[in-house]
Design a protein around this nucleic acid. Structure first.
Lengths: 205, 205
DNA sequence: CGCAAAAAATAACAGCGTTCCGATACGCTG
DNA sequence: CAGCGTATCGGAACGCTGTTATTTTTTGCG
């Protein structure tokens, strides 16, 4: 009845892969549909038939980014000590960002101007923060953390890791700064701030 | 000797003003030199003779943003209580961001793709964080905060306010979330985490 | 075998930042 | 006062972008 499609799943993956490379190498600005299509040996139309538009292509990258990010978070070994576990999750968060800074920009800092994630992608993104919530809920239930809404603490934890990573990636940290050390100290200080008074005896040096 | 210039300081201010409005209204993506020039009743060449390029124009916006931001920070009344003063500065930071979110994006989240602030602008930006450093240095000297490099604490404080504000501006906070309350609680928890043990008795509820 | 339909590639469109170039309008000089 | 030199300006042009329309190609079925 018609011509069989060659814009298949393989090409879709190839384009996604190459798009990731382009962004990782030279930032979101360097991702051009024309260059992308030329690199993949096809035409710009392929992107439109496979993804719909450039924002939709970015949405696919966003989703893939959160898949990897979620795997890192869910795969972080936990000890049961809430403060240490929050530090560990924060370190995984940072490692994920440093592994592909430009992908991180797409995921967390709206670095591609016209792009907004769709509902599915946002749901996936929210899902990746579940390990964080679990730790906090348990710590509150066990009386280790103060009894405030868990969202409050979760947002605070997310904020400090996101803030630290953003500052690091945008080059806003001082020269000759022990990033890893300061990062862990800041995470520990932040987490310790939510300890109930009788548990707050141990403060980092 | 030659034709007198009509691309003068007044036009420069007019362009900057209008550029700020365009960005504030529809985001950095909506700032087009052609539209800007047309709105100001001049030609695109004017922008190039007055600023040099689009990134240079954005640099002027960046500088103006940090001038206002610095005034807010320096004008925040302080009490001498380190934790409360850090909360106050953090609230001023948030107020500044909410007053013009898109300007905040230019200043702190590299929301204009090709733009990098020049050396003068970066120096001005660093200067605005001086009040933060002063508070921290005194708190360490007074034995209120633990004896770590002040940069470590400063970065931690900057990170949490930047992280919280970023999450708020990108719409990543939960629905029906008491932002102001959670913001202050998180700031207080973070600052409290740097208290020396004997001073850490009072934790927010 | 030819025809219709589906898919892919090419070309076109509108917009962008930037640069070039001809037109313009002034101050100095003769 | 006329005319020239020159600094300045505005419009047009260049190369790029994302997107859309059009044309070409390819295929299975009657």
């Amino acid at each position: 009845m018609a011509r069989p499609r060659t814009h298949d799943e393989a090409l879709r993956l190839k384009l996604l892969d190459r798009a990731g490379e382009l962004i990782a190498a030279d930032g979101p600005k360097a991702l051009s549909l024309r260059k992308l299509a030329a690199d993949a040996g096809t035409s710009t139309t392929a992107v439109y038939s496979l993804f719909g538009s450039k924002p939709d292509l970015v949405n696919a990258l966003y989703t893939e980014g959160f898949r990897r990010f979620g795997a890192r978070m869910a795969g972080t070994p936990l000890t049961g000590d809430a403060v240490e576990d929050l530090v560990a999750l924060g370190s995984a968060y940072r490692a994920s960002a440093l592994a592909d800074p430009n992908l991180y920009g797409i995921m967390f800092t709206k670095s591609v101007p016209g792009f907004e994630p769709n509902e599915d992608a946002e749901e996936l993104a929210r899902e990746t923060l579940k390990p964080l919530e679990r730790i906090i809920r348990r710590a509150i239930a066990d009386g280790v953390f103060v009894d405030v809404p868990p969202e409050t603490i979760a947002v605070g934890c997310w904020a400090i890791v996101h803030g630290l990573v953003s500052l690091e990636l945008t080059g806003n940290l001082p020269e000759e700064f022990d990033v890893t050390g300061a990062y862990e100290a800041a995470l520990r200080a932040n987490a310790s701030g939510w300890l109930r008074p009788q548990n707050s005896g141990s403060i980092p040096s």
